[in-house]
Design a protein around this nucleic acid. Sequence first.
DNA 1: ACCTGAACACCGTTCAAGT
DNA 2: ACCTGAACACCGTTCAAGT
Lengths: 208, 208
Amino acid sequence: MARPGGIPEPENPKRGTYHHGDLKRALTAAALQLVQEKGPKGFTLREVARRAGVSAAAPYRHFADKAQLLAAVATQGFVQLHETLAAAADTTMTDLSAQVLAMGRTYVRWAVSHPDYYQVMFGSEFDKTQSPEVVVAGERAFGDLLDTIVRCQRSGLLPAGDPREMAGPIWSLLHGVSMLTIGSDLVNVGIREDPEALIERSLRNLLL
Amino acid sequence: MARPGGIPEPENPKRGTYHHGDLKRALTAAALQLVQEKGPKGFTLREVARRAGVSAAAPYRHFADKAQLLAAVATQGFVQLHETLAAAADTTMTDLSAQVLAMGRTYVRWAVSHPDYYQVMFGSEFDKTQSPEVVVAGERAFGDLLDTIVRCQRSGLLPAGDPREMAGPIWSLLHGVSMLTIGSDLVNVGIREDPEALIERSLRNLLL
DNA sequence: ACCTGAACACCGTTCAAGT
DNA sequence: ACCTGAACACCGTTCAAGT
């Protein structure tokens, strides 16, 4: 099947291999795999290029530098977190009072089961000022929490007002438990409680 | 003044310069300065050696590798945090009910005003399993929080029981607010509340 | 005992040159 | 338009050799 125009179909990879195709996607895929395999520390641009089967210089046609590739990974992480949270919000429609708790448990569960992802998303190996796409993806995930809060407010289960006022403490708690769990800091200090149980208990207290 | 023995006084640097003296301390000092100057990312072992006026290989007589030097920095951070928290616990002896709040505000204030320090302490650029000294220093800082909780429990201001049960949620909250503030994540999502105010508000809710 | 010099393998990044 | 090869400056780490 010959194609009419001279445009090389940037969105539609016909060939199985990507050597001529979307190397960009291949690079982010390899980057993802590498992060999950070796952690954010062992992440190297040259190794990513190697896995994609291209030269060390090739990635620079698609990403300004190493930080931008890591930012792409972080963005994917936020997208995945968002999808997970959105799915959880749908599931628990029955018992509204448990929605925030379910959201919290889901958030922490995702974080602790994707520790390298999570560390890239919130680590300091790239400058968020230089990668607004990451911030946008992050806002989308945060929006799931806001939505849940608004829904509870409308049902009178939470006091009315700017949902951000509730979201600040809640997100901080979720992030703190996630990070301290991933770093084994809670265990190191003698706290062996399961993170999901800890979150549930904490949220109950926080929400009065 | 001649010294009698042949032992070169490892603890007692007589000379003003440390070129023959305790290079170890000089290295951690330079490391500290470098972290505060360039952040945890720009931290390089060779640059530390340069600032200490020694060759690139010299640090290896005192630290197994780069990670161990960063661990030393983290340890110093925990010591400083501990001192700050302990001082705060002394100051606020008058109003006992405010002690946990004061502790929380002090913790967050220290964290956000020493962001690079804090990121080294909780970042993933060294393996805590390989540096038990860091864990010990961390436990000491955590102990300040435990002490405050116990004091409040003895005054009937908090329910009795294992103080760790309270400390888990509280520490998670403090850590979450600190990290999200340092990373500008709260601001990026439209939350512009001052971190100390946010902590105070959150702790009040959490403590019933 | 502690430090230097030189070396090794590796990185991020750039750039002329190929197709 | 996209990729390669070779190069540059820099790293972490090792090791024989100096004092």
